[in-house]
Amino acid sequence: MWPVTDAAIETSGLTKLFGHQRAVDALDLSVPRGSVFGFLGPNGSGKTTTIRMLLGLAAASSGGIRMLGEPMPTAIASVLPRVGALVEGPAIYPFLSGRANLLRLDAADRHASSRTRRARIDAALERVGLSHAADKKAHAYSLGMKQRLGIANALLRPRELLILDEPSNGLDPQGTREVRALIRSLADDGTTVFVSSHLLSEIEQLCSHVAVMSAGRLVAQGTLDELRRGEQRIEVRTPDAAAARRVLQQLRLVVDAGSESGTVSATLVDGVLPEHVTAALVAAGVRVRGLALAGAGDQGNWLEERFVALTGEGFDVAG
């Protein structure tokens, strides 16, 4: 078990500029050790750029990163051997076999033992179900097999942290299930797993924590339960709509603008429970004729609804 002393990943004000565009804007990410952390966001929201900065592939324009308790990219040589990663899909040498691909990438890690190399590679291939195709040239691999090879590369050594960018990409339903089971078993061993995905149902099944990016900014972060609660809505039926509205605003709730006359509705936020609202309304002399709670978390696809609410509708890729 790894020491549970601090966050596995911690960023403060992490920013990446491409010209004038803020690809990542003042990101404060906190990934607790031992969590399975879902990293969500539409295409072009800055997820992959963030992952590139975490791994030292791209330099931050400003802000800082601590990974496994050490500053990045200063401590890159001692941090990265403890991190396995799949970034923006697998990359292969098409003219090498699957096994030779892993031999090469493992040799690149100067701390990895040559003596145990073959055994570790066999174990990783076995773990992703690629043993039978290990000696085939990789250019003959299907998309799913390449994906498996990429995941095997992340598992060549015992890792404290896995960063998996779209791990289920290109996999068939069986493969998706296998990857999910694999992530669960790794998490059970104490590995922190940071996973970005568009498959919200998968995130919901896998993750203990979630962060949502939109247009380079972090728009939500917390446990899955916090995110679910965050969507709980309260609706007050009252003849004193104006007074009720004032009370809710004083509680720092975001009141819906277009409430029909006789009802005021708002989204609940952390720390404000329905009983607090009731007490405040009564104390202000608002005549409450009805109080209803609607949790988006009750819906089957609550995470998708929440995701769209946070990142916006529409089909446009953020420029």
Partner: peptide, 18 residues
């Protein structure tokens, strides 16, 4: 071009060493 550069670097190979 192959994309393998990013995997060599996060292995980590070390940029100067590579």
């Amino acid at each position: 071009n192959l994309g393998t550069l990013r995997y060599l670097l996060i292995a980590p190979a070390g940029r100067l060493r590579l």
